[in-house]
């Protein structure tokens, strides 16, 4: 009896919910479009950084984005090291500080699932730049260690967590995890508490007191 009463009510709400959701979606899209139209489009070519890079290293640029007040440039893999050298030495850009190197895993991009993100900062010119390099699963990217020494640990961390390989890195080992750890935890296919049975395997390998298992 109770169930019978429930069923039509639920159906109604479901239909209503779908209609509501549709209406909401349309409103949201309209709002977004309005916002986009209102927002002044940033002319990318007018930015001094973009101008300078386009003048010297136009062939390295794959894509330029400006969002959240941050400039992002996607770089072709082979041009990364010369571009970084130039970015550091040129007095106009003068990026003397490497903030971080991040590995991101996008399993949805089947061709190039790995991405390396570099955050640069210039203490003299006081501006920031984000560089991105997309990589296929078996590709290596040139290490920026010769340009900024701080890349040493950052790249080791990216290797440890996401499994990105850096060519010509002086000492590419794991940094936060133990040397004999298997897998790269920040990949999307890695489960939150580790692969099934890995804990027991790990303890058996390293725990002298087997009663702990």
């Amino acid at each position: 009896m109770g169930e019978n009463e429930k069923a039509p009510k639920k159906k109604l709400t479901k239909e209503e919910a779908i209609a509501l959701a549709k209406a909401r979606k349309a409103a949201k899209a309209a709002e977004a479009a309005k916002k986009e139209a209102e927002e002044p489009k940033v002319d990318l070519d007018s930015l001094p950084l973009v101008k300078a890079i386009k003048k010297e290293h136009a062939e390295a640029i794959e894509d330029i984005k400006f969002a959240n007040n941050e400039l992002t440039i996607t770089v072709k893999k082979d041009y990364l090291l010369p571009l970084c050298r130039w970015l550091k030495s040129d007095p106009e850009t003068a990026f003397d500080y490497l903030s971080e190197v991040i590995g991101v895993h996008y399993p949805k991009n089947e061709e190039k699932p790995l991405q390396v993100v570099y955050h640069l900062f210039s203490t003299q010119k006081n501006h920031r730049l984000r560089l991105k390099v997309n990589l296929a699963e078996d590709e290596e990217v040139e290490s920026v260690y010769p340009v900024w020494r701080s890349a040493n640990w950052y790249e080791r961390e990216a290797y440890d967590m996401v499994g990105i390989k850096f060519a010509n890195h002086p000492d590419l080992r794991r940094i936060l995890l133990p040397e004999d750890w298997e897998g790269h935890p920040l990949r999307k296919e890695y489960p939150l508490q580790g692969p099934e049975g890995y804990r027991e395997k790990w303890l058996r390998r390293h725990c002298r007191n087997t009663n702990a298992l």
Binding site: A67, N68, E70, S99, E100, R128, R130
Partner: peptide
Amino acid sequence: GEAYACVEAPKGELGFY
């Protein structure tokens, strides 16, 4: 989208990407 924000923590530049 993506965002990077940094603050001057007592130890130095603290950033969240």
